[in-house]
Amino acid sequence: MSDLLSVEDLEVSIGAVRPVRGVSLRVAPGEIVGVVGETGCGKTLTGLAVLGLLPPGARASGRVVLGGDDVLGGDPRAVRGRKVTMVFQNPGTAFDPVTTIGGQFARVLRAHTGCSRRAARARAAELLTAVELPERVLDNYPHQLSGGMLQRCMIALALSCEPSLVIADEATTALDVTVARQILRLLLRLQREHGFGVMFVTHNLAEARDICDRVYVLYAGRVAEEGMAHAVLDRPRHPYTRALLAALPRLDAPRGRLASIPGSVSHAEVGCSFAERCPDAKDVCRAETPPAHDGVACHFPGGAP
């Protein structure tokens, strides 16, 4: 099957810093693909690059092709809100505070379909029903709604464009656990009904394992490991993925200090960027950048000999 989204060797630089250093990933139509990693590994920038929405001052190179359209080379507005939409991390700030929810739906719907105000309202009410919200929410301002309700609105807004790809950027992070579950379930149900692909950006490995078909583990702007979600997260081969999983707090673990990964992210130009923090690092790790092989960018996948 041809790819819905194909990102090849994406690099993003902001001044002298290169937060994304050659990420390649694919999303097939209707597939849910997780992009996981800790803060600052380049997850969000990768998502924004797909929309052509990088912050001012950021420069991107590589290839981003979405449903046949070259996003980096062409006009990203050809795909935004038509083929791809984004569900943002902070529902509280992602909506325009001085316009009603209905007004914001109308703005998007009318920009794409040129329909009448009345038709836009009817369509918006339908979309809200799909995310289990009452129609009266259309007349509310964002500050009158809870985070969970706003995230439902955001998902409904995403649906309004009938996209083939939805980028969910930490869509549940700002919500409490039970609401986050509801939002995930909603997203999955709509994904099954509408068949869009999902790029699920998260640092929550448990969520990624639960809903993703495949995952990419990003570290310091590179793909450290990729593969089927269960394979990668149940039998990690890259030491970073192993360390990340070991850092998950567990209720059944013996009491004591929580596990963490020593040190902090380094963006070493030479060698493996994880070498500094890797328990199994050898000399070759510091000298040579490991090539991706069989889905793992590590000199010693599965542990040192």
Partner: peptide
């Protein structure tokens, strides 16, 4: 530079709408 302006862009509104309306 606000989040909701980024949202407006992400949903495909034209720069003119983003500037003068949002």
């Amino acid at each position: 530079a606000q989040d909701h302006v980024r949202t407006a862009r992400a949903y495909g509104l034209s720069e003119r709408t983003v500037t003068w309306r949002v």
